[in-house]
Amino acid sequence: MRRTSMMLAGAAGLAVAAFALAQDQSDEIAKYREMLAGDNPAELWEMKGEELWKAKAGPRQATLEACDLGKGPGVLKGAYAELPRYFKDTNKVMDLEQRLMYCRMTLQGLTEEQATAAHFGSTDKPSDIEPMVAYITAQSRGIKMNVPMNHPQEKRAYELGKQLFYYRGGSHDFACATCHSGDKMRIRMQDLPNLTKTKDAQAAYTTWPAYRVSQGEVRTMQHRLADCFRQQRFPEPMYGSEAITALTMFLARNANGGVYNGPALKR
Rank of each mutant, 00 (worst) to 15 (best):
Q114S: 01
C228M: 12
A138Y: 03
I187R: 08
R188L: 15
N91Q: 00
A17K: 11
L64P: 04
G10V: 06
L107P: 01
G109E: 01
G169L: 07
Y239I: 08
L110A: 00
A115W: 04
G74T: 02
K71D: 14
T198H: 14
N40C: 05
Q215K: 14
K162D: 11
G13A: 13
M47W: 10
V147M: 06
W208C: 08
K92E: 07
M238L: 11
M47R: 13
L96F: 00
Q215F: 09
M47L: 14
T206P: 03
R3P: 01
D227P: 01
D183Y: 07
W208I: 15
G240A: 08
N150T: 11
P193V: 01
H223T: 06
P131C: 03
L160K: 14
K31I: 05
N150K: 06
A246M: 11
G72S: 12
T106W: 01
G257V: 14
D128E: 14
K88A: 12
A203G: 07
A264S: 15
D95A: 00
W53I: 02
S214N: 13
S122T: 14
Y239L: 06
N261M: 10
I244T: 07
A264F: 12
L225M: 12
A264Y: 12
P152G: 05
D173N: 14
A18F: 14
